[in-house]
């Protein structure tokens, strides 16, 4: 990918001097981020650091701001105050920075958001061909590799509407991966799925976690959080309440609100 320093030199050393986190280079950094929807305070002074290759799982009750948090990282939501730096690039009003950050991040949505008018393979090759200007043949070869990886190569010429929910979500993951992102954001990837399809999607994400890509996953799947996460972030009312390693977090939560939440769902 393009060297960030050539694009905007003034931003290049924004966080290069920052301390590493857990022995990793910092990939996403949020400092004092605030977000309002009208008068509703969706994010309240969020401070967060995610290291390169780290798997972070964000949990919390609905309306707690989990989705808003990760949607701010690739500017699907605009943050009102504070600073967000992704891989050394600060999110500002500058559209070039936004474009750059969106190239480095892939996103998987709760409702899949596949393009219904395109076949599976065209869904996957759209980004590489239009944004990275990759030749058609190369893009399709890559797409087939990715479909092998998510275990549905035989569905390549079908339309999204002909697939099951689990298959659609796996296509959506392949579509994001086709852009070779450094960071993958998952916004409740299994919440819209029938129970028997959840595991097929989670398995793909687990596989992904082993490849060293940075993952930020918003989910309600506690089993997944326990198994895959390097760190678990618990959010409530737009604030980060507690952060911890999964073993410690699930067995011995410190905060009262965390204890209450876990007691309700486990």
């Amino acid at each position: 990918m393009t060297d960030t320093t050539t694009i905007n030199p003034s931003l290049a050393n924004v966080n290069r001097d920052a301390t590493e986190i857990g022995g990793r280079e910092i990939m996403v950094e949020m400092v004092g981020v605030n977000k309002f929807f009208g008068t509703f305070h969706a994010l309240n002074s969020i401070d967060m650091k995610v290291g390169s290759g780290e798997v972070v799982v964000v949990i919390g009750p609905s309306g707690s701001g989990k989705s808003t948090l990760i949607r701010c990282i690739n500017r699907l939501e605009h943050h009102d105050r504070g600073r967000i730096v992704v891989d050394g690039i600060e999110l500002t009003e500058d559209v070039r920075n936004i474009a750059l950050i969106r190239r480095e991040t892939g996103m998987v949505f709760q409702q899949f958001n596949l393009f219904p008018h395109l076949t599976v393979i065209d869904n996957i090759t759209l980004g590489p061909r239009q944004v990275l200007k990759m030749p058609k043949k190369q893009a399709e070869d890559r797409a087939m590799e990715l479909l092998e990886r998510v275990k549905i190569p035989e569905q390549a010429r079908k339309f999204p509407g002909q697939l099951s929910g689990g298959q659609q979500q796996r296509v959506a993951i392949a579509r994001s991966l086709a852009m070779q992102p450094k960071i993958m954001l998952f916004d409740e990837p299994t919440s819209a799925l029938d129970p028997e399809m959840i595991s097929e999607v989670l398995n793909v994400i687990l596989e992904l976690a082993k490849t060293g890509i940075t993952l930020i996953v918003v989910t309600h799947e506690m089993g997944f959080a326990r198994e895959a996460a390097d760190r678990v972030i618990f959010m409530a009312d737009g604030e980060i309440v507690e952060v911890g390693e999964p073993e410690h977090f699930f067995t011995n939560p410190q905060e009262e609100r965390t204890q209450l939440f876990l007691s309700q769902i486990l």
């Binding site: 690739n74 474009a99 892939g106 409702q111 958001n113 393009f115 980004g127 239009q130 944004v131 852009m179």
Partner: peptide, 17 residues
């Protein structure tokens, strides 16, 4: 749906695209 536009944005496409 708005999600279609968001999916396009997340892929890094520009508004005309």
């Amino acid at each position: 749906p708005k999600g279609q536009i968001e999916a396009g944005q997340a892929l890094g496409l520009q508004p005309p695209g």
